[in-house]
Amino acid sequence: MVQRQSEQRMLSAEPRPSARRLAVWGDPIAHSLSPAMHAAAYAVLGLDWDYGREQVAEHEFDKTLARLDGTWRGLSVTMPLKERAWAASVRRSRTAELTRAVNTLLFTEAGPVGINTDVAGLAAALREAGFGGVDAVRVLGGGRTAASAIVSLGELGAHHVTVHARRPEAVADFVALGEATGVSVTIAPLHADAFDDAADLVLSTLPGGTALADEVVAAAASTPLFDVAYNPWPSVLGEQWREAGGAITSGAGMLAQQALRQIRFFVSGDDTHPLPDEATVLAAMRQAAAGSAH
């Protein structure tokens, strides 16, 4: 574990000293709670930074990025732009390289430096929710967040992950990703008969509006669900799970923890370096998110 932790240390970068503009990009983006959370954090830290949001389509990412001037400090990036941000990065953290996903860009004199805070953010949220000791986990979905989940679960010491995807052939590379992070990964379809063995947790990386077939939920709902969706809550899948008698946990904890690491990176260039009075910052972020979600 010591070796794994040392391998996971993030690269450091030097932020533009006077740049104060930031934003979250995605498509869609209107639902994002990031502006409220970041604004609350910067208020606690006494930073006069401007954090907005912009809907950017995947095919428009590169030209929109090229238009940003020297007043920009960085970006938070959500779906479907994480692979575009990965490609745009001149340097990347190890977890960004493993997952081929970047959700945070810091602008430096050398160009954008990319990291993936979803990995550490999810691991922290799972610990907070009491799932830090899971061994066998089912991951629903085949996108870049599912890749982040595999790496997070490896960091937590899980040994077995079954990835359930609508197109299993499209996520065959997750087996090699598991090997790189010490996790045995099996690929399976999203069919009820694929849920035929025990697991400690089901972790959904599906969009919040996704519904699964009733027979799939019935086959899986005896296992607790951690859903990365958070707004609105419960998600469609979360409501299905609850109606089937299962326990559900929202992704609000992951949202806060990954955003905290983004703020560390924007402030110091090191997402592992704690902020001043970080507990107060995190509490303010969570309060802002809760207020904006209603």
Rank of each mutant, 00 (worst) to 15 (best):
A19C: 11
D48C: 03
R242D: 11
K82G: 00
D118E: 10
A211P: 03
R127Q: 13
A221F: 09
A176W: 05
A57I: 02
E215P: 07
G269E: 09
P17N: 13
L237Y: 04
S34E: 09
N103P: 05
W241E: 08
G182K: 06
G70F: 01
S292I: 01
V139G: 05
S222R: 13
E14H: 11
A149L: 06
T71D: 15
A43R: 15
H160G: 02
V151C: 02
T71M: 08
A123L: 06
S12F: 00
S34Q: 11
A288F: 11
G157W: 07
P28R: 03
A40M: 11
F131Q: 00
V163Q: 01
H160M: 07
V24W: 03
S12C: 14
Q8Y: 12
T205V: 06
A221I: 13
S292G: 14
L212Q: 09
G269D: 08
G253E: 00
G132N: 07
L206Y: 05
F107S: 03
G208L: 08
R73N: 08
P80Q: 09
E179K: 15
M285H: 07
T249W: 08
V217F: 07
H159L: 11
R92A: 09
A158F: 01
G133Q: 13
R84C: 12
A43T: 13
G251L: 07
N231Q: 13
D50Q: 12
L75N: 12
E155L: 12
A136F: 05
S18D: 15
D196I: 07
A36C: 07
A284H: 07
G121W: 00
D118L: 02
V102W: 03
W49P: 01
V236N: 06
M285D: 04
I187W: 00
E97V: 15
F107V: 10
A96W: 05
Q8E: 11
G253I: 02
R91Y: 07
L260H: 10
N103L: 06
A247Q: 15
L260V: 15
T95F: 04
A290F: 05
H38T: 08
A199K: 01
S292P: 05
A289S: 09
G26C: 13
D277S: 14
F265N: 04
A101Y: 04
L68K: 10
H31G: 06
R167E: 13
A288P: 09
A110W: 02
L190F: 06
A149N: 06
A283D: 11
D277W: 12
T205S: 03
T64G: 01
L153F: 06
Q240P: 06
F131E: 00
A101C: 09
R92Y: 08
R127P: 03
G208T: 10
Y51V: 06
F226D: 00
V2P: 01
L260I: 12
F174D: 02
L177K: 07
A172Y: 03
A244C: 12
D277H: 15
A123F: 02
